[in-house]
Protein backbone atom coordinates (compact mmCIF):
# COMPACT_ATOMS: atom_id res chain seq x y z
CA UNK A 1 0.00 0.00 0.00
CA UNK A 2 2.69 2.37 1.07
CA UNK A 3 4.94 1.31 -1.76
CA UNK A 4 2.08 1.88 -4.20
CA UNK A 5 1.52 5.38 -2.91
CA UNK A 6 5.23 6.02 -3.21
CA UNK A 7 5.37 4.97 -6.84
CA UNK A 8 2.39 7.13 -7.79
CA UNK A 9 4.04 9.97 -5.91
CA UNK A 10 7.26 9.38 -7.84
CA UNK A 11 5.26 9.39 -11.08
CA UNK A 12 3.69 12.70 -10.20
CA UNK A 13 7.13 14.10 -9.45
CA UNK A 14 8.52 12.97 -12.77
CA UNK A 15 5.44 14.40 -14.48
CA UNK A 16 6.14 17.71 -12.83
CA UNK A 17 9.75 17.58 -13.91
CA UNK A 18 8.64 16.78 -17.43
CA UNK A 19 6.15 19.64 -17.42
CA UNK A 20 8.86 21.94 -16.15
CA UNK A 21 11.24 20.89 -18.90
CA UNK A 22 8.59 21.03 -21.61
CA UNK A 23 7.40 24.50 -20.64
CA UNK A 24 10.91 25.87 -21.05
CA UNK A 25 10.50 28.29 -18.16
CA UNK A 26 13.93 27.27 -16.87
CA UNK A 27 15.24 29.32 -19.78
CA UNK A 28 13.21 32.34 -18.66
CA UNK A 29 14.45 31.99 -15.09
CA UNK A 30 17.99 31.79 -16.36
CA UNK A 31 17.47 34.95 -18.39
CA UNK A 32 15.90 36.61 -15.36
CA UNK A 33 18.93 35.73 -13.23
CA UNK A 34 21.37 36.80 -15.90
CA UNK A 35 19.75 40.10 -16.81
CA UNK A 36 18.44 41.24 -13.46
CA UNK A 37 20.86 41.85 -10.64
CA UNK A 38 19.61 41.40 -7.08
CA UNK A 39 15.81 41.52 -6.61
CA UNK A 40 15.97 38.27 -4.66
CA UNK A 41 12.49 38.61 -3.10
CA UNK A 42 10.96 39.34 -6.52
CA UNK A 43 12.65 36.38 -8.14
CA UNK A 44 11.56 34.04 -5.39
CA UNK A 45 7.96 35.29 -5.64
CA UNK A 46 7.98 34.73 -9.38
CA UNK A 47 9.32 31.22 -8.86
CA UNK A 48 6.55 30.60 -6.33
CA UNK A 49 3.90 31.78 -8.75
CA UNK A 50 5.38 29.71 -11.56
CA UNK A 51 5.51 26.66 -9.31
CA UNK A 52 1.87 27.15 -8.34
CA UNK A 53 0.82 27.42 -11.97
CA UNK A 54 2.86 24.37 -12.90
CA UNK A 55 1.38 22.32 -10.07
CA UNK A 56 -2.11 23.50 -11.06
CA UNK A 57 -1.43 22.28 -14.55
CA UNK A 58 -0.23 18.92 -13.26
CA UNK A 59 -3.30 18.65 -11.01
CA UNK A 60 -5.58 19.30 -13.94
CA UNK A 61 -3.75 16.65 -15.94
CA UNK A 62 -4.63 13.98 -13.35
CA UNK A 63 -8.18 15.26 -12.91
CA UNK A 64 -7.85 16.99 -9.55
CA UNK A 65 -9.82 20.12 -8.90
CA UNK A 66 -7.89 23.14 -10.13
CA UNK A 67 -9.61 26.47 -10.06
CA UNK A 68 -8.65 28.93 -12.76
CA UNK A 69 -6.10 30.96 -10.84
CA UNK A 70 -6.38 34.71 -10.72
CA UNK A 71 -3.20 35.99 -12.28
CA UNK A 72 -3.60 39.73 -12.00
CA UNK A 73 -0.65 41.26 -10.23
CA UNK A 74 0.56 44.45 -8.68
CA UNK A 75 4.21 45.47 -8.87
CA UNK A 76 5.20 48.14 -6.40
CA UNK A 77 8.55 49.80 -6.04
CA UNK A 78 10.59 52.90 -6.66
CA UNK A 79 11.42 53.99 -10.19
CA UNK A 80 14.08 52.02 -12.00
CA UNK A 81 13.75 48.87 -9.93
CA UNK A 82 12.90 46.72 -12.95
CA UNK A 83 9.11 46.53 -12.83
CA UNK A 84 8.64 46.77 -16.59
CA UNK A 85 11.42 44.29 -17.31
CA UNK A 86 9.99 41.78 -14.86
CA UNK A 87 6.54 42.26 -16.42
CA UNK A 88 7.99 41.25 -19.78
CA UNK A 89 9.57 38.15 -18.24
CA UNK A 90 6.30 37.39 -16.46
CA UNK A 91 4.49 37.50 -19.79
CA UNK A 92 7.06 35.00 -21.10
CA UNK A 93 6.52 32.70 -18.15
CA UNK A 94 2.72 32.85 -18.37
CA UNK A 95 2.86 32.18 -22.10
CA UNK A 96 5.17 29.21 -21.69
CA UNK A 97 2.96 27.74 -19.01
CA UNK A 98 -0.03 28.16 -21.32
CA UNK A 99 -1.90 30.70 -19.22
CA UNK A 100 -1.78 33.35 -21.93
CA UNK A 101 -1.96 32.76 -25.66
CA UNK A 102 0.79 35.17 -26.54
CA UNK A 103 3.74 36.71 -24.73
CA UNK A 104 3.10 40.30 -25.74
CA UNK A 105 2.94 43.11 -23.22
CA UNK A 106 0.96 46.27 -23.84
CA UNK A 107 2.32 49.00 -21.57
CA UNK A 108 -0.10 51.86 -20.94
CA UNK A 109 -0.58 54.77 -18.57
CA UNK A 110 -3.61 56.84 -17.61
CA UNK A 111 -3.45 58.78 -20.88
CA UNK A 112 -4.08 55.65 -22.94
CA UNK A 113 -7.10 54.59 -20.91
CA UNK A 114 -8.94 57.70 -19.86
CA UNK A 115 -10.66 60.00 -22.33
CA UNK A 116 -11.05 63.74 -22.31
CA UNK A 117 -14.79 64.12 -22.62
CA UNK A 118 -17.97 62.22 -21.82
CA UNK A 119 -18.24 59.03 -23.83
CA UNK A 120 -14.59 59.03 -24.80
CA UNK A 121 -13.28 56.84 -22.01
CA UNK A 122 -15.17 53.61 -22.60
CA UNK A 123 -14.14 53.11 -26.25
CA UNK A 124 -10.60 54.15 -25.42
CA UNK A 125 -10.24 51.71 -22.55
CA UNK A 126 -11.91 48.96 -24.56
CA UNK A 127 -9.55 49.50 -27.47
CA UNK A 128 -6.54 49.12 -25.20
CA UNK A 129 -8.07 46.04 -23.60
CA UNK A 130 -8.71 44.51 -27.01
CA UNK A 131 -5.11 45.13 -28.01
CA UNK A 132 -3.86 43.47 -24.84
CA UNK A 133 -6.16 40.43 -25.12
CA UNK A 134 -4.27 37.17 -25.16
CA UNK A 135 -1.31 38.72 -23.40
CA UNK A 136 -0.44 41.05 -20.56
CA UNK A 137 -1.70 44.57 -19.95
CA UNK A 138 0.85 46.55 -17.97
CA UNK A 139 -0.60 49.70 -16.40
CA UNK A 140 2.18 51.95 -15.19
CA UNK A 141 1.43 54.36 -12.36
CA UNK A 142 -2.01 52.85 -12.03
CA UNK A 143 -2.96 55.07 -9.08
CA UNK A 144 -3.41 58.01 -11.46
CA UNK A 145 -6.55 56.25 -12.73
CA UNK A 146 -8.27 57.20 -9.52
CA UNK A 147 -8.49 60.89 -8.66
CA UNK A 148 -10.46 61.28 -5.47
CA UNK A 149 -10.22 65.07 -5.55
CA UNK A 150 -12.38 65.20 -8.69
CA UNK A 151 -15.55 63.17 -8.42
CA UNK A 152 -16.37 63.70 -12.07
CA UNK A 153 -13.04 62.32 -13.20
CA UNK A 154 -13.38 59.79 -16.01
CA UNK A 155 -10.78 57.52 -14.42
CA UNK A 156 -13.47 55.79 -12.39
CA UNK A 157 -15.26 54.75 -15.58
CA UNK A 158 -12.05 53.26 -16.87
CA UNK A 159 -11.52 51.35 -13.63
CA UNK A 160 -15.03 49.90 -13.85
CA UNK A 161 -14.50 48.61 -17.37
CA UNK A 162 -11.13 47.25 -16.34
CA UNK A 163 -12.66 45.44 -13.37
CA UNK A 164 -15.36 43.91 -15.52
CA UNK A 165 -12.86 42.51 -18.00
CA UNK A 166 -10.47 41.41 -15.23
CA UNK A 167 -13.31 39.38 -13.76
CA UNK A 168 -15.10 38.04 -16.84
CA UNK A 169 -12.20 37.39 -19.16
CA UNK A 170 -9.58 36.04 -16.85
CA UNK A 171 -8.57 33.53 -19.53
CA UNK A 172 -7.96 36.23 -22.09
CA UNK A 173 -6.05 38.85 -20.22
CA UNK A 174 -3.62 39.31 -17.34
CA UNK A 175 -3.42 42.80 -15.86
CA UNK A 176 -0.31 44.02 -14.05
CA UNK A 177 -0.61 47.27 -12.12
CA UNK A 178 2.59 49.08 -11.25
CA UNK A 179 3.62 52.12 -9.26
CA UNK A 180 5.09 53.53 -6.07
CA UNK A 181 4.33 51.39 -3.05
CA UNK A 182 2.54 53.87 -0.78
CA UNK A 183 0.45 55.40 -3.56
CA UNK A 184 -0.58 51.98 -4.84
CA UNK A 185 -1.67 51.10 -1.32
CA UNK A 186 -3.90 54.17 -1.19
CA UNK A 187 -5.23 53.24 -4.63
CA UNK A 188 -6.14 49.73 -3.50
CA UNK A 189 -7.67 51.03 -0.28
CA UNK A 190 -9.98 53.33 -2.19
CA UNK A 191 -10.80 50.67 -4.82
CA UNK A 192 -11.61 47.54 -2.85
CA UNK A 193 -12.95 45.90 -5.99
CA UNK A 194 -9.56 46.24 -7.59
CA UNK A 195 -7.70 45.04 -4.49
CA UNK A 196 -9.76 41.86 -4.27
CA UNK A 197 -9.12 40.99 -7.88
CA UNK A 198 -5.36 41.35 -7.71
CA UNK A 199 -3.98 38.15 -6.28
CA UNK A 200 -0.26 38.72 -6.31
CA UNK A 201 1.39 41.74 -4.78
CA UNK A 202 5.11 41.90 -5.46
CA UNK A 203 7.28 44.55 -3.89
CA UNK A 204 10.48 45.60 -5.63
CA UNK A 205 13.21 46.60 -3.17
CA UNK A 206 15.77 49.29 -3.92
CA UNK A 207 19.17 48.12 -5.09
CA UNK A 208 22.17 48.08 -2.77
CA UNK A 209 25.39 49.85 -3.78
CA UNK A 210 27.08 46.58 -4.72
CA UNK A 211 24.11 45.62 -6.88
CA UNK A 212 24.11 48.99 -8.60
CA UNK A 213 27.79 48.55 -9.44
CA UNK A 214 27.03 45.13 -10.84
CA UNK A 215 24.22 46.69 -12.91
CA UNK A 216 26.64 49.30 -14.24
CA UNK A 217 29.03 46.56 -15.29
CA UNK A 218 26.22 44.61 -16.92
CA UNK A 219 24.89 47.59 -18.88
CA UNK A 220 28.40 48.47 -20.00
CA UNK A 221 29.08 44.91 -21.07
CA UNK A 222 25.83 44.78 -23.06
CA UNK A 223 26.99 47.74 -25.15
CA UNK A 224 30.56 46.44 -25.47
CA UNK A 225 32.08 48.86 -22.98
CA UNK A 226 34.11 48.05 -19.92
CA UNK A 227 35.62 49.88 -16.94
CA UNK A 228 39.32 49.88 -16.21
CA UNK A 229 40.28 49.41 -12.58
CA UNK A 230 40.30 53.08 -11.67
CA UNK A 231 37.08 53.52 -13.63
CA UNK A 232 35.36 50.86 -11.58
CA UNK A 233 36.47 52.53 -8.36
CA UNK A 234 35.22 55.86 -9.71
CA UNK A 235 31.88 54.23 -10.52
CA UNK A 236 31.67 52.91 -6.96
CA UNK A 237 32.29 56.43 -5.62
CA UNK A 238 29.81 57.83 -8.09
CA UNK A 239 27.08 55.48 -6.86
CA UNK A 240 27.77 56.35 -3.23
CA UNK A 241 27.52 60.06 -4.04
CA UNK A 242 24.47 59.68 -6.26
CA UNK A 243 22.52 57.66 -3.68
CA UNK A 244 22.66 60.58 -1.28
CA UNK A 245 21.19 62.97 -3.82
CA UNK A 246 17.51 63.46 -4.66
CA UNK A 247 15.64 61.92 -7.63
CA UNK A 248 17.66 58.76 -7.61
CA UNK A 249 15.99 56.24 -9.95
CA UNK A 250 18.01 53.10 -9.29
CA UNK A 251 19.03 51.26 -12.46
CA UNK A 252 17.71 54.05 -14.67
CA UNK A 253 20.05 56.58 -13.04
CA UNK A 254 22.93 54.21 -13.56
CA UNK A 255 22.07 53.82 -17.23
CA UNK A 256 21.87 57.59 -17.66
CA UNK A 257 25.21 58.01 -15.87
CA UNK A 258 26.77 55.51 -18.24
CA UNK A 259 25.31 57.30 -21.24
CA UNK A 260 26.92 60.52 -20.07
CA UNK A 261 30.20 58.73 -19.36
CA UNK A 262 30.14 57.43 -22.92
CA UNK A 263 29.67 60.99 -24.16
CA UNK A 264 32.72 62.13 -22.19
CA UNK A 265 34.75 59.16 -23.35
CA UNK A 266 33.92 59.97 -26.95
CA UNK A 267 34.80 63.59 -26.37
CA UNK A 268 38.15 62.60 -24.80
CA UNK A 269 39.05 60.30 -27.68
CA UNK A 270 38.02 62.97 -30.15
CA UNK A 271 40.09 65.71 -28.50
CA UNK A 272 43.15 63.46 -28.42
CA UNK A 273 42.66 62.36 -32.00
CA UNK A 274 45.19 64.77 -33.54
CA UNK A 275 47.77 64.27 -30.77
CA UNK A 276 48.15 60.55 -31.12
CA UNK A 277 47.47 57.77 -33.55
CA UNK A 278 43.99 56.35 -34.01
CA UNK A 279 42.62 54.74 -30.81
CA UNK A 280 42.82 50.97 -30.76
CA UNK A 281 39.93 48.68 -29.93
CA UNK A 282 40.86 48.70 -26.26
CA UNK A 283 40.68 52.49 -26.07
CA UNK A 284 37.31 52.53 -27.83
CA UNK A 285 35.91 50.11 -25.26
CA UNK A 286 37.33 51.48 -22.04
CA UNK A 287 35.65 53.95 -19.73
CA UNK A 288 38.26 55.48 -17.45
CA UNK A 289 38.04 57.16 -14.06
CA UNK A 290 38.22 60.60 -15.66
CA UNK A 291 35.07 59.95 -17.74
CA UNK A 292 33.11 59.31 -14.57
CA UNK A 293 34.75 61.73 -12.16
CA UNK A 294 33.91 64.66 -14.46
CA UNK A 295 30.26 64.21 -13.46
CA UNK A 296 28.60 66.99 -11.51
CA UNK A 297 27.46 64.38 -9.01
CA UNK A 298 30.93 64.65 -7.42
CA UNK A 299 30.41 68.35 -6.95
CA UNK A 300 27.18 67.86 -5.07
CA UNK A 301 24.80 67.35 -7.98
CA UNK A 302 22.29 69.88 -9.30
CA UNK A 303 21.93 71.91 -6.15
CA UNK A 304 25.50 71.42 -5.05
CA UNK A 305 26.38 75.07 -5.39
CA UNK A 306 23.63 76.12 -3.05
CA UNK A 307 24.81 73.59 -0.49
CA UNK A 308 28.36 74.81 -0.74
CA UNK A 309 27.22 78.35 -0.05
CA UNK A 310 25.29 77.39 3.06
CA UNK A 311 28.03 75.22 4.52
Amino acid sequence: MNAEANTSCAEAMSDLALLYRESGIAEVFEKLDRELVGLAPVKSRIREIAALLLVDKARRAVGLAASAPSLHMSFTGNPGTGKTTVAMRMADILHRLGYTRSNHVIAVTRDDLVGQYIGHTAPKTKEVLKKAMGGVLFIDEAYYLYRPENERDYGQESIEILLQVMENQRDDLVVILAGYKNRMETFFRSNPGMASRVAHHIDFPDYSEAELLEIARLIAAQTDYRFDEAGLAAMRDYIAHRLAQPHFANARSIRNALDRARLRQAQRLFMNADKQSAPDKEALMTITAGDIRASRVFRGGLDGERKQESS
Partner: peptide, 10 residues
Protein backbone atom coordinates in the same frame (compact mmCIF):
# COMPACT_ATOMS: atom_id res chain seq x y z
CA UNK B 1 -3.03 46.41 -33.95
CA UNK B 2 -4.79 43.51 -32.29
CA UNK B 3 -2.82 40.40 -31.37
CA UNK B 4 -5.55 38.09 -30.23
CA UNK B 5 -9.05 37.25 -31.52
CA UNK B 6 -10.64 37.38 -28.07
CA UNK B 7 -11.16 41.14 -28.34
CA UNK B 8 -12.89 40.82 -31.73
CA UNK B 9 -15.09 38.00 -30.54
CA UNK B 10 -16.12 40.23 -27.65
Amino acid sequence: DLRDPAGILL
